[in-house]
Deep mutational scan, measured.
Amino acid sequence: ERVRARYDYEAQNEDELSFKKGDIITVLEKDDGWWKGRNGKEGLFPSNYVEELE
């Protein structure tokens, strides 16, 4: 599954994923509120910062 970033997100910890608004992220795992994904790097990000691609 792929999602698009709705906002910029700056990683707060080294296991998190940074991205810019409009970036496409491949979702690897979904957990409550935090998803694991890849966009060149791999890490956790808040699920409310992304939207599913149509």
Score class of each variant (00 low, 15 high):
residue 6 R to T: 10
residue 35 W to S: 04
residue 23 D to H: 05
residue 20 K to M: 09
residue 40 G to A: 09
residue 35 W to I: 07
residue 2 R to K: 14
residue 1 E to T: 14
residue 45 F to W: 01
residue 36 K to R: 15
residue 40 G to D: 12
residue 12 Q to R: 13
residue 34 W to Y: 10
residue 23 D to Y: 03
residue 5 A to Q: 02
residue 22 G to H: 06
residue 35 W to G: 00
residue 48 N to L: 10
residue 44 L to P: 01
residue 51 E to I: 08
residue 46 P to C: 08
residue 46 P to T: 01
residue 24 I to Q: 04
residue 2 R to W: 11
residue 28 L to K: 03
residue 38 R to T: 11
residue 5 A to N: 00
residue 6 R to S: 08
residue 35 W to L: 04
residue 36 K to E: 00
residue 26 T to N: 07
residue 2 R to M: 14
residue 24 I to W: 09
residue 51 E to W: 06
residue 23 D to V: 04
residue 25 I to E: 03
residue 49 Y to I: 07
residue 54 E to G: 13
residue 31 D to A: 15
residue 49 Y to K: 07
residue 1 E to H: 15
residue 20 K to N: 08
residue 7 Y to W: 15
residue 10 E to I: 13
residue 29 E to K: 11
residue 28 L to D: 04
residue 40 G to C: 10
residue 3 V to M: 13
residue 12 Q to S: 09
residue 28 L to R: 02
residue 39 N to F: 15
residue 2 R to Q: 14
residue 37 G to N: 03
residue 12 Q to A: 11
residue 12 Q to P: 04
residue 11 A to Y: 01
residue 36 K to Y: 14
residue 11 A to V: 01
residue 12 Q to C: 10
residue 33 G to P: 10
residue 52 E to G: 12
residue 34 W to P: 01
residue 3 V to D: 02
residue 13 N to H: 11
residue 37 G to T: 01
residue 21 K to E: 09
residue 9 Y to P: 00
residue 31 D to T: 15
residue 45 F to C: 02
residue 10 E to S: 11
residue 49 Y to W: 08
residue 37 G to L: 00
residue 41 K to N: 11
residue 22 G to R: 04
residue 15 D to G: 14
residue 16 E to G: 08
residue 13 N to V: 06
residue 38 R to E: 08
residue 53 L to T: 08
residue 39 N to V: 10
residue 9 Y to K: 03
residue 5 A to M: 04
residue 25 I to T: 01
residue 39 N to Q: 08
residue 17 L to R: 01
residue 8 D to P: 07
residue 49 Y to V: 08
residue 26 T to I: 14
residue 42 E to Y: 08
residue 17 L to C: 04
residue 45 F to P: 01
residue 20 K to C: 10
residue 17 L to M: 09
residue 30 K to E: 04
residue 24 I to M: 09
residue 21 K to T: 10
residue 15 D to M: 14
residue 17 L to W: 00
residue 17 L to G: 00
residue 9 Y to S: 02
residue 9 Y to W: 07
residue 27 V to A: 04
residue 12 Q to M: 12
residue 11 A to H: 01
residue 37 G to E: 01
residue 44 L to W: 15
residue 29 E to A: 14
residue 49 Y to G: 04
residue 38 R to I: 10
residue 30 K to L: 05
residue 1 E to I: 15
residue 28 L to H: 03
residue 24 I to Y: 10
residue 31 D to R: 15
residue 16 E to H: 10
residue 20 K to L: 09
residue 33 G to D: 11
residue 16 E to C: 06
residue 8 D to K: 05
residue 48 N to D: 14
residue 25 I to F: 08
residue 42 E to I: 15
residue 10 E to M: 12
residue 27 V to M: 04
residue 27 V to D: 03
residue 47 S to I: 08
residue 51 E to M: 08
residue 49 Y to H: 09
residue 18 S to I: 01
residue 15 D to V: 08
residue 47 S to E: 08
residue 24 I to H: 05
residue 53 L to H: 07
residue 37 G to Y: 03
residue 37 G to S: 01
residue 43 G to T: 02
residue 40 G to N: 10
residue 47 S to L: 07
residue 51 E to G: 06
residue 48 N to H: 14
residue 4 R to S: 04
residue 16 E to I: 00
residue 17 L to I: 13
residue 33 G to L: 13
residue 36 K to I: 10
residue 18 S to V: 02
residue 52 E to S: 14
residue 11 A to T: 04
residue 27 V to N: 01
residue 13 N to E: 08
residue 27 V to R: 01
residue 26 T to C: 11
residue 6 R to I: 15
residue 12 Q to L: 10
residue 15 D to N: 15
residue 24 I to L: 09
residue 50 V to G: 04
residue 49 Y to E: 00
residue 11 A to R: 02
residue 19 F to L: 08
residue 9 Y to L: 02
residue 41 K to L: 09
residue 1 E to R: 14
residue 13 N to S: 13
residue 49 Y to N: 05
residue 43 G to N: 01
residue 18 S to Y: 03
residue 24 I to A: 02
residue 45 F to M: 02
residue 45 F to Q: 03
residue 33 G to N: 14
